[in-house]
Design a protein around this nucleic acid. Structure first.
Ligand SMILES: [Mn+2]
Ligand SMILES: [Mn+2]
Ligand SMILES: [Mn+2]
Ligand SMILES: [Mn+2]
Lengths: 225, 225
DNA sequence: CCTTTGAATTAGGTTGCCCTAATTGCAATT
DNA sequence: AATTGCAATTAGGGCAACCTAATTCAAAGG
């Protein structure tokens, strides 16, 4: 008999968040995770111990957590559902690009495998979410990142926006208002010193946008030429 | 400030189940609810007390529970989401008629109002679920039942199947195998005495189906003529 | 090497939702 | 009017996730 390991919504959110944070730093600090999930550090630590017991993560005391292979594939399954729902909400239901992230965060926990497969087929097996991030395939494989953060561009360079990582609705709303959607063409005009903002001209917009470094690290681009 | 009353998935299931059971008997017995939800009677009683505190139900000791107006409208909202998702799963994703009930039971708790509205619009504001039951409109209004239970038909009468109430996957599977879907034409051929089964001829099927009274009370029809 | 400081951890709760076993009460039957 | 059977209720737990306050630790700077 298979170990009937039901994964609660809460556990799925922990695993998904760890996967997202591992793209920035690894192992992931307890406090990072606490901030991302909006819960206290002791709560995270307690859950991390439960996850470690189930061999979904490894915890190095005073260092942080990392996903095991098992945990990683669990996380990718959630990410797949999340991004498929996002496509559905934008492409089929025509809901706003910056709002669907939150809606998908609810739906991602509530779709049986048969539903996910049928949804993917209906959508034409898309390979990116509306924010440009890759959708893992049914086996859990995901293409590696080829774009670079806008933060690492050089002044004067032009680029095409490819994707926005570490999605959060407030970030998406901010970027949408400035035309910074996947596919947008932009030019880095200036970088203020002392951790100051990046001035970015977006094609079709009159005024350049000022992006803090925090944000510029999450916006990925393909430089032209 | 509005009393931010988040309704958990569990509470939603209690309210929906009470609404469904009220169609059969009212007030709803604690043990009925316990059986429907697959939990113990003490658990139900405990929850019923919580629901009563929130003025979602009224509890008459040793009698049972009834929904208040507040509880009823909450329940109809869940039912609306459930039935809209069922339509989506059958019409758009082409999933099997008898399987979608369970899938929709997960999705019904995970759709923000904006998503529900957009989904209803995309589906063309349908007014019944794939099992023939009415979908409450956005304001929570639902047409009254006009069909009668197959159980109350007289021998020799013919009828068109309209809907199946008190949905459960095993029941739907049983009926699907015998062609008993909404729209099916049927004739009541015989009723065995002593609470015995009803023999029903279904158009397009060679052998008549034998339905227990429990089931015949849940299959609704419009008699011809 | 010692001190400092913020992150991690421990200690000790609470709440929601579930359980089994024991008891009580209602209502139907003798 | 007493009995009996089943449903309802009470009693006493359990576990997953959350919290705040107090303590301990590690890494960095003096
Ligand atoms: Mn989520
Ligand atoms: Mn996305
Ligand atoms: Mn449900
Ligand atoms: Mn249905």
């Amino acid at each position: 008999m298979a170990t009937l390991s039901f994964t609660s919504e809460t556990v799925e959110m922990y695993l998904k968040s760890i996967a997202e944070l591992e793209l920035l730093t690894t192992p992931v600090a307890i406090s990072q995770l606490a901030q991302r999930l909006g819960v206290s550090s002791p709560s995270v630590l307690e859950m991390v111990k439960r996850l470690a017991e189930q061999k979904l993560v490894t915890h190095t005391p005073y260092k942080g957590v990392s996903l095991t292979a098992r945990g990683h594939s669990r996380a990718l399954a959630v990410l797949r559902r999340h991004r498929l729902w996002e496509r559905f909400l934008v492409d089929t239901l025509r809901l706003p690009w910056e709002a669907v992230h939150d809606y998908a965060c609810q739906l991602e926990h509530a779709a049986a495998p048969a539903v996910v497969d049928a949804l993917a087929q209906f959508l034409g097996e898309p390979d990116t979410c509306p924010h440009g991030n890759p959708i893992p395939d049914a086996k859990g494989a995901m293409p590696a990142e080829t774009a670079i953060p806008l933060l690492t561009m050089e002044i004067g360079q032009s680029a095409r926006l490819t994707n926005i990582i570490y999605e959060e609705t407030i970030l998406l709303e901010y970027l949408a208002r400035r035309g910074l959607l996947p596919g947008a063409m932009l030019t880095l005009e200036d970088v203020a010193p002392y951790q100051g903002p990046l001035m970015v001209r977006v094609d079709g917009f009159d005024h350049p946008a000022a992006l803090g470094r925090e944000i510029a690290a999450r916006v990925f681009v393909h430089v032209i030429e």
